[in-house]
Amino acid sequence: MVAVTVVCALLVLAGLASTLARRRIGLLHLWGAALLEVLLVVQTVLAVVALVRGERPEETATFLGYLAGIVLVPVAGALWARSEPTRWAGTVLAVAGATVAVMVWRLLQLWEATGG
């Protein structure tokens, strides 16, 4: 969770920086998005394992919705940013990073509402 948040923050910063510098996104940004995606997939696997073992968050349906949605965000963001030839591509990635950060936070909130 901490790792995800850190990578999100880095992605937001890198994206905004390239927009401010009026530059297009580079490989760095795409690697950042890829790393974030890998972490999210790992997180999803861990969460699914815990669910299968019988742990249930407060609102299972909501939790599953976030879990499924969150892995789509970096992919969609990266695709949408890659086809943008201007400096605004970085901001698109920043939006994706911020979205993932918020969603992770909500996931954690839901998970901890189990009370054990």
């Binding site: 789509l72 965000v73 969609a76 949408w80 943008e84 201007t86 605004w88 901001t91 939006v95």
Partner: peptide
């Protein structure tokens, strides 16, 4: 959908989700 508009579309996409 170009330039800043692309960011707008991204934010709208997030809110649709």
């Amino acid at each position: 959908a170009g330039g800043p508009g692309r960011v707008l579309v991204a934010v709208y996409g997030v809110f649709t989700l």
